[in-house]
């Protein structure tokens, strides 16, 4: 017998691979978690021709990949995938099972958790191992994002969580990496009650942050997704784009493509409106090319005011509705 797969499992969501980095980000975090509980990271790679993704996951830190290749797995089908992965879990009992909070992950993981009779924390913004109990602590927004809850799964396995893209950092691609490969038996159960009649790709609006003349940026100070959505209306009224700081992305208020700063994009708009951002260097590094910077923050000592041309000291919850109302009247 060879080695057994590590007990921290990550579901490999390889669709749109070079844009969708959440699996790689999860592998990075899973490595830390696995180390804490003395095991390794195994990535599940399910599909028809998935060989290059298995290699990619090893390059980004997977200790092993568990591969199922079959023509009937070419489509992401929730019922088929649930039956397949549930059987693997029941047979080999991983401690932790993670997936990205993508459209598929949000559909697939609740069904899988139900099938396995275990808990699931959705859209987590942090994960860590409790040093005493060795349980996975899953931090997830609760009450509409007003507070963060820490969830544990003490009595059932695996401990399951989905994580929003952009929360964790991916490890760099290492061409010298090697990893184990497992080919468990693939039993396809024709349980699908959904038939794919035709496929149409939704055209998503292209984000043109770098080209925008007006950029509206939201940060942690906005406090909730609902507040952040007001920025989208503000940007639309000004024919601009919405950017975000890392805390806003971690909170799941918007997609990672909108991240500005050292690990995100750099912009040079004529006007930049920064709302609820403290002005941390990691963020301001990406906006220093802006023409006029307008900052809204309730803390008069926030560093953002040092680089802004115009500052409004006030709570975004109060200022934004007034600003929107005025703009609606004038535009």
């Amino acid at each position: 017998m060879g080695e057994q797969p590590g007990r921290v499992w990550v579901f490999g969501d390889y669709r749109n691979y070079f844009q969708n980095r959440v699996t790689l980000q999860l592998i990075g975090k899973a490595k830390e978690l696995a180390q804490e509980i003395g095991t390794g990271v195994t990535v599940l790679v399910v599909g028809e021709r998935v060989r290059q993704y298995a290699m990619e996951y090893v390059a980004h830190g997977a200790d092993a990949v568990m591969v199922a290749e079959h023509p009937d797995l070419s489509e992401y089908r929730v019922e088929t995938y649930t039956a397949l992965v549930a059987e693997w879990v029941e047979t080999y009992g991983p401690e932790i099972l993670l997936a990205g909070a993508t459209a598929f992950g949000r559909s697939f993981f609740p069904r899988l958790a139900k099938r396995l009779r275990t808990g699931l924390s959705a859209d987590c913004v942090d994960l860590h191992i409790d040093p005493e109990t060795k349980l996975l602590v899953q931090t997830t927004p609760a009450w509409g994002g007003e507070l963060l809850a820490e969830v544990i799964t003490p009595h059932h396995r695996p401990q399951m969580a989905t994580v929003h893209p952009g929360v964790f950092e991916e490890r760099p691609h290492d061409p010298e990496a090697t990893g184990g490969i497992f080919y468990p038996e693939v039993k396809i159960r024709k349980e699908e009650r959904i038939r794919v009649l035709r496929r149409r790709t939704r055209r998503s609006r292209k984000i043109r942050l770098e080209e925008a003349q007006v950029v509206v940026v939201g940060g942690r100070g906005l406090g909730s997704k609902a507040q952040f959505e007001m920025l989208e209306e503000l940007a639309e009224l000004l024919d601009g784009e919405v950017g975000a700081t890392r805390p806003a992305i971690r909170a799941g208020w918007t997609e990672e493509e909108r991240l500005l700063g050292q690990t995100g994009k750099s912009v040079r708009p004529k006007t930049l409106i920064s709302v609820g951002t403290s002005g941390a260097l990691q963020y301001t590094a990406g906006i220093l090319g802006a023409g006029t910077i307008i900052a809204i923050n309730r803390d008069p000592h926030a560093p953002i005011f040092k680089i802004s041309d115009l500052g409004v000291v006030g709570d975004a919850k109060s200022v934004l509705p007034i600003l929107l109302e005025e703009l609606r009247k004038r535009l």
Binding site: G2, Q4, P5, M55, V58, T91, Y183
Partner: peptide
């Protein structure tokens, strides 16, 4: 279900044999 590690793969180059990947 056969679950033992059957081989190791490389991030850089692999061979395909018996429908499975291996670095050598």
């Amino acid at each position: 279900m056969h679950f033992s590690e059957e081989s190791r793969i490389s991030a850089h180059h692999n061979y395909l044999v018996n429908g499975r990947m291996t670095q050598g």
